[in-house]
Design a protein around this nucleic acid. Sequence first.
DNA 1: CCACCTCGAGTTCC
DNA 2: CTCGAGGTGG
Length: 794
Amino acid sequence: MDLFSQAADADRAEELRATLNRYAHAYYVLDAPLVPDAEYDRLFRELQGIEAEHPELLRADSPTQRVGGAALKALAEVRHRVPMLSIETETDTTEGGAIAFDVRVRRKLGLADTAPPVEYAVELKFDGLAINLRYEEGVLVQAATRGDGEVGEDVTHNVRTIGGIPLRLQAQAPAVLEVRGEIYMRRDDFERLNARQTERGEKTFINPRNTAAGAVRQLDPAIAAQRPLSFFAYGVGEIQGWKEPPVTHAGLVDALAGFGLPVCAHRTVTQGAAGLTAFHQHIAALRDSLPFDIDGIVYKVNSLALQRELGFRNREPNWAVAHKYPAQEELTKLLDIEVQVGRTGAITPVARLAPVFVGGVTVTNATLHNEDELRRKDLKIGDTVIVRRAGDVIPEVVGSVAERRTGREHEFVMPTLCPVCGSHIVREEGESIARCSGGLACRAQRTQAIIHFAGRRMMDIDGLGERYIESLVEFGYIDRIADLYTLRLDDLLDMKRRADERDGVTPETVQQGKIATKWAENLIAAIAASKQPPLARLLFALGIRHVGESTAKTLAGWLGSLEWIRCAPKEIFAVLPDIGDVVAESLHDFFSEPNNERVLDELLRAGVKPLDEHLPTARLAQRIGMAELLGHLKIPRLTAIRSQHLAALVTSIAALVELRSEQILALDLPAEVTSALDTWLADKGNFDRLKRLENYCSRLLAITPQEDSAVVSPFTDMTFVLTGTLPTLTRDQARALIETSGGKVSSSVSKKTDYVVAGSEAGSKLANAQKLGITILDEAGLLALVGEHKDPPL
DNA sequence: CCACCTCGAGTTCC
DNA sequence: CTCGAGGTGG
């Protein structure tokens, strides 16, 4: 090898290092790639080639050295040259905390009340892992964790794998520059990582912070390299040879950005206490939509000279404070795991927790959904667990803290018998939910069925709450939904007396007796008032499996009356939109169960009279086509295509019933279909089924089609999603408004959503809508939109 | 057959 | 709100 080529390679290697580092900066830090990935890979491999040939050209700042080297035995200790101090946490989480800090600063600086406001640099407090990056002559030489502030751990090998951390600084960096910042994991990266773990059947991680911290402290850099970590710089440690050092904190962070280090955009310079509280409010509103977790914000006196003047106390700077938001995650003890029995018999494990204040409320219970979930989270009774109220409402046990185990924890054992009725608990193959097999013989299921029936979106019996229904069932006054309508005043009063007795409530005075009678009268009246619900509500109230609000509306809208629905053949259900085999089967099972038939009859006899819908005969005739019906009859060998074919030849059910063997032969169908059809028709059961279907269809369609008063609305086929709390309208009112204008209200945001109506405290749905670029309305916007299309000027 | 969209069901706290 | 699972369209 001649010297000339070696010199050329050295130049080329230097050039490649610079180019690749520039590309990496654009990609990771600026989020604006300069070249396609393939081009980066090509140059990367070229550099690898040169370095393999000339090991003496290897440099610490070479991008090829991000992942390299073998796993360590243990992490080495690093003594920080300038201690990594923590900042004081303001205990007052309200605005008062910001004001108190400003007052302390002004007093320490000896400022008069009339003096101008102090200038502050304000930024986010990231929920990650604090780190010190040491650059010498612009090259990253060491990365260390905070540790106890004096001595940390050397994690250089892992930190090198983080794409956003430059291995070489841009511009004229000081001879020595220690950068302080936070390593964290973005929420979306965290979720993707977990999705990948699930895919591979590996354990998922609990939260971004623990995952990031764990990754940085890995011994094997290859593992750390697979964890998507990010970094923000916000301060400095030791500095030597900085020619024009900044004079403010904001200027310092800007300078770090100038060196190619990633800094957070959510920072600003502001004046006085008012500026601090404004930033506090601003970030509080933004918190849930940030791409990463924060646990608060940080206020710093902007002027570095003033910082020096303020100095330290108890090894904490007097010129900075962390102002936290109420925790969204807390640790608590998992005291016990109990099971609940739901309306459908679903056995749900529920966590009983030591009370813990999280996200603004005290949480003592949290659902664990099902057994798989519980095992996935590795929960044992007695564990210390992480509880979250993810910006939302419903508490969730995120996972257990394995390090806190004492050995006295024990596994939860799923019961095999229902705790309420003693029936067997069965878990169907491939299902995640275990169910009590007791059906309505199980008191829990009976009670839940009645609670459901009386609920607001169903029969809406005002004043008949969960408590009373439980007592009524417990003392035997009601057993089934129909019994509600035969309840007498005395039954209610007796029930209340016995319930009070059980609870040890003092015997009643005359005054209280009067109140109780009034209560019972009102309740009886409320029950009577529920007797004429819209048909869909009654259907939903019945609690048929797989039939919720939406399916109930479909049934009511297409078949019009309870009479037509309860005697409909399975195939009719299945041709309706959004109803498939499973739901059709469930409906058919429900209406052919003698117990249910009796209950329905009793309801009708008691005077329950649902408001029927107009029967859309014309549309119905279109939908109940021969091909569709054939498809749902489950005739062997008759595929969807062949059903269409046969439907063209035999155009009505009536004709099919009459079909003789010779005629089937003449149809010119594939031989196997001919014989299968022949055998199928010859079966008495099938023949009767067909007869009934034919009979049903002809009666149903014989009803004279009424004029379809086609209300053409500009909202037709528009899908809305509601989220958050609107200022004046309730959710139900907004929903009614949209529906009466012809729109549809859906529960989740997708590409098909036309508008998202967002109120205050909107959650993930709003974020999702923003991501998908869906038009977002506030209440006023919705009203305007409705108003525009209503009452066109004459 | 798969991917995507909806719906159903269960749940917390005040 | 979230998960699971049913329905549908490509």
